[in-house]
Design a protein around this nucleic acid. Structure first.
Lengths: 196, 196
DNA sequence: AAGAACACAATACAGGTGCAATGTAAAGTG
DNA sequence: CACTTTACATTGCACCTGTATTGTGTTCTT
């Protein structure tokens, strides 16, 4: 075998360029040539690492998922269940430039996947895993008044919705975090008369 | 003036075709020619009623907003504040074919608007109006333990998130409605020790 | 040294895109 | 009646798209 090149590294380089494009010009601004230009390489090279455009898109979105998951696992180091859940969910909100970028790609890709059933399965799987994790934490925290599965679904939806609205710049970051905290308050204090 | 044609009606006819396309092939499947073909007219006619593609897209999304608002106002006939809020929010969830269609268009357009600041303002305005309405209802309902504005933000985000996840077919309709109801339970029963 | 395996680069191509220009028929107005 | 305004339809154009093909170095193996 000839020159040794780290395939995965190259693909990430290209996917990073794709993300930058998607965040600024939208998914319609993503083409092989644009990605190549943004990455400063030839379109031939892009074709060399991704046989088709769909392959490139799928890889890029998978990368976003992986990064969110990696950060979530890092955030899962906290001890207290509530802080843990909060920390994990905060990884989804676009609170800095990196996550804003990811948010744009995620949103664009979700719209993209909404009409491509083949891709939907991966999304569903990944979201399901995270939902299960949150539910498990809620169970361990013993939030009495709520059904863990249901609450986890609500939390994930809330964060997704908040993130989406933040991307349209509907309100400042603090309001989104405050809304999440308020929701967490409701869940973790839902003792409903269990005090005497 | 010659032949009298209801401009708005024609535009809605074309926008309906656009929605059908966006829901099945995604926003990238929306082109002047495709819309024309779907509506059964010539591309020249499409150009006649929309000078530019952006104008067409903006009109279509505005139509979705109008329809949701119209249904919401109809649903606002209920007396009890909680049922009223619930009824309004349910208009956003894609619980039937019509709303599923609208949901797809809404999602696609939100991703579209995320990179076009000029369009964002309209979205922000519309969402803000609805958020204000919800907050007002919460205030009237006298849900003691919660800040109305914050709770309204949370509710809107929750419903948006639920709707988005439903479009990716992450879980059945009932689960989404159940999650909404669970959230409403938390808000309307948040008396937090206000009982003695 | 020979040759294969690889990493690109360049180019070509068929098809789709938004949009502009132009044409035509009908309906209204004077 | 002539004339203007409107409602389309047709066509053309320059550009961009994804992909296939081919070419060219470079490196590793044998």
């Amino acid at each position: 075998m000839p020159r040794k090149v780290d395939h995965h590294e190259r693909r990430e380089l290209l996917a990073d360029a794709l993300m930058r494009l998607a965040a600024t010009r939208g998914l319609e601004g993503v083409s092989l040539r644009h990605v190549a230009a943004e990455a400063g390489v030839s379109t031939g090279m892009v074709q060399h690492y991704f046989r088709t455009k769909d392959e490139m898109m799928t890889f890029a979105f998978g990368m976003v998922e992986d990064r969110i998951r990696a950060r979530s696992e890092a955030a899962a180091a906290s001890a207290a269940p509530r802080d843990l859940v909060r920390g994990v969910l905060l990884q989804i909100l676009p609170l800095d430039d990196t996550r804003r970028l990811e948010g744009h790609v995620g949103l664009a890709f979700l719209a993209y996947a909404a009409v491509k059933p083949a891709i939907q399965e991966g999304v569903r799987e990944d979201a399901g895993r995270m939902r299960g994790f949150i539910a498990q934490q809620l169970r361990q925290a013993g939030a009495d008044g709520v059904d863990p599965e249901r609450a986890a679904t609500g939390l994930m939806a809330l964060v997704d919705g908040l993130g989406m609205q933040m991307l349209s710049r509907q309100y400042p970051e603090e309001d989104a975090v405050a809304a999440l905290d308020a929701h967490l308050d409701l869940i973790f204090d839902a003792d409903h008369g269990s005090r005497q």
